[in-house]
Design a protein around this nucleic acid. Structure first.
Lengths: 187, 187
DNA sequence: GACTATCTACCATGTGGTAGGTAGTATTTA
DNA sequence: TAAATACTACCTACCACATGGTAGATAGTC
């Protein structure tokens, strides 16, 4: 199946990236995991960089879609942020690191295009969080406090950081909605 | 210089690990950076795993020493935690990731001994934070709130997460003491 | 004479990537 | 409609190079 193989490659490679990292997974690993020969992977993704960028681009698209969905389904800031928390958490559920976090860790060993995508990904998430918080501040749903941008930074920090700690210590200590509320209302 | 070389190797390799990751730096890179032949590195650290564990062990020692110093110099919880914040921040100042975070990212591609050290490192930091907070709760310096363990988890999450975000977005948005106080007093 | 720190010269293996072939499926053309 | 053509997805068999690691020599130091 044509499209199926490509999807399987992206999906499997994404998992590898989010457990081992970009450098530490090879076409050989991927070949074995998907059940296709190494050379056939090159047919779909001529270089590893192509594969890497495809993974991140697809992921960014997915997140963008989620953002739209959240905005459509939730009117209030807190609801939107809790929905974001939810998708962030469930994405890490299968014992996976956040994709952008995993990439960030080996940033300066990545090809330029992937470095740029990683940065773009972070900027996009921070941007959405900031805009969402600003919206809430303007509507007086939440206090301004230290500002939308700073709150966004804190929220994403907690989510990324907790993922890493849980992953490394094999704990399951998800961030709760009350933490989100603490930051949003008191930071 | 005998001891100097070993130290230079550990120091340079630590920097490489905290920018590229363990897998993505090679003995060749290290050789070039230190100005010594590849084979000579093997004289000091027979295997890469030896080098990796030496780096982490030395780092853990350093942190342990810092913890003692903090306890000696600061009587109150808030002071101790702010001192911790300070060393964490200054360690990330030169555009470096937290060592344990960088390792965590490629955890399942690491040799077992390094996986265990990484986990031990996190446990140690969480342990110290938890004990410090418990101490403060017993002395009524801070409220119990969601508990010492949970506060410790949040604090370390914020520190780790913010390091990654700053590193990836090339921003300089350090966590302020007021954030520590927010968590400690209101979480 | 043993030990330490370094070197040159290797080696086996794994890496991303290429060349070229085969079978099946569309697409064009006589 | 039938034959020729092109395209897709996969394959086997390579290649150059980088990887971590070893053998063995040399020179200086305890």
């Amino acid at each position: 199946m044509a499209v199926g193989t490509r999807d399987a490659l992206i999906h499997t490679a994404e998992n590898l990236m989010r457990t081992r990292g970009y450098t530490a997974f090879s076409y050989a690993d991927l070949s074995e995991a998907v059940g296709i020969r190494k050379a056939s992977i090159h047919h779909h993704f001529p270089t590893k960089e192509d594969l890497g960028t495809a993974i991140v681009e697809e992921y960014i698209d997915r997140v963008r879609t989620e953002f739209s969905r959240i905005e459509a389904q939730h009117e209030h800031v807190i609801g939107r942020l809790e929905a974001f928390l939810h998708i962030f958490r469930s994405s890490a559920d299968g014992g996976l690191l956040p994709l952008c976090g995993a990439l960030a860790a080996e940033m300066s060993a990545l090809p330029l295009s992937l470095q740029q995508l990683t940065q773009r990904f972070f900027d996009m998430q921070l941007g959405w969080l900031t805009r969402t918080l600003e919206h809430g501040i303007k509507r007086k749903e939440i206090p301004e406090g230290s500002g939308a941008k700073h709150k966004a930074f804190l929220l994403l920090s907690i989510l990324e950081g907790s993922s890493f700690i849980n992953w490394a210590t094999k704990a399951e200590d998800p961030i709760s909605p009350s933490v989100v509320r603490l930051i949003v209302e008191h930071a």
